[in-house]
Design a protein around this nucleic acid. Sequence first.
DNA 1: TGAAATACTGTATATAATTACAGTATGAAC
DNA 2: GTTCATACTGTAATTATATACAGTATTTCA
Lengths: 199, 199
Amino acid sequence: MNTLTNRQKEIFDFIKSKISDEGYPPTRMEISKFFGFKSPNAAEDHLKALKKKGFINILSGTSRGISLSDDDDNIPVIGLVSAGSPMLAEENVEKKIPALPISSHGVDFYLRVRGDSMINVGIFDNDLIAVNKDLKVKKNAIVIARIDDEVTVKTLIEISNNKVVLKAENENYDDIVINPNKVNLNFEGTCVGLIRNMN
Amino acid sequence: MNTLTNRQKEIFDFIKSKISDEGYPPTRMEISKFFGFKSPNAAEDHLKALKKKGFINILSGTSRGISLSDDDDNIPVIGLVSAGSPMLAEENVEKKIPALPISSHGVDFYLRVRGDSMINVGIFDNDLIAVNKDLKVKKNAIVIARIDDEVTVKTLIEISNNKVVLKAENENYDDIVINPNKVNLNFEGTCVGLIRNMN
DNA sequence: TGAAATACTGTATATAATTACAGTATGAAC
DNA sequence: GTTCATACTGTAATTATATACAGTATTTCA
């Protein structure tokens, strides 16, 4: 998908806000009025550009026939992570679900938790944790780490150039102490929320 | 708000599905075509009825100018419950948020948990629990009980005509043993899910 | 440096859409 | 037993809307 110019992004944002505010997309005239265009064709041209770049679909002959093609506010749920594959690789995506209704930080994906290593902080087997992948990992945060292709959820209690300590929140598990220069360690993100389904 | 006739509900549902499928509301002609009306005025009449009953708004002179007036898929979050007031009374509603993305059962409201009495089952202070108020309360379910105006979340471990036992999932709390004939006991619902926001 | 993309103005027109008015028929409410 | 709400048919007019064509000016990229 191509990138939008500043002006095109403004138009695209206007369309999105119209849809969320009014409940329906704008007409060419409404776009023109908002941006001060003297001709509806200016809006038409922008819509064609947005369509060409794949950001919207246009139904011809249909009033307000604009739909956003990039509707994916749905967030992937990651089940088991295959060795060697990136977190968000298609083979790892169990399904897609809408965003967490609460959450101060953005959620990039949900990860289904396996095992009981974090029960002391209320993260149970089969829970979904909401993960933000761009937040800087910080001490005392619950992080999603990948150690030599093994994905694990733990509390980060120490991080320096040659030592990383990951703590399981369960007395039955030992701390994981790693020299990041010797093993392959990646942080896949920080846990920012949790969803549990009870039956 | 008035109630809808079966036919009006069909029309209303069609409008909702059009909005979610196509991204914009239908025209009178599209409604008529779908239902087999031979006149667009049949749709017009229905829209007026829906407007009169408060289910939609209509912007005159605007193509597809239909908007849904009640975003009733948003679910109330209940904070502190005032003594004597029904659970869902307005004064108890903190805010409204979209439905839990997962959940096998319907969610009638979210309740903000106060205290640590359920930490052994992973329910922590400030968590939101998703509550279904119509499920029959069952042994071993986590229930929301109201005992003489005091709302509490506990595991129901015994229920009979003259004895109800509610268990806190934390060693520091004793079981609550109640004779339902002597105190005012109501079950407000069953916990069907959980949301936690982490910062 | 020259073509293509961007960002518009200006005009025009076919058609999409709203919506009023005039009816018909049926069942519920008072 | 008549009024009101529901649920439509049928017609028609005004206006809302999409969208083509012909331009101009500027910027981007190869």
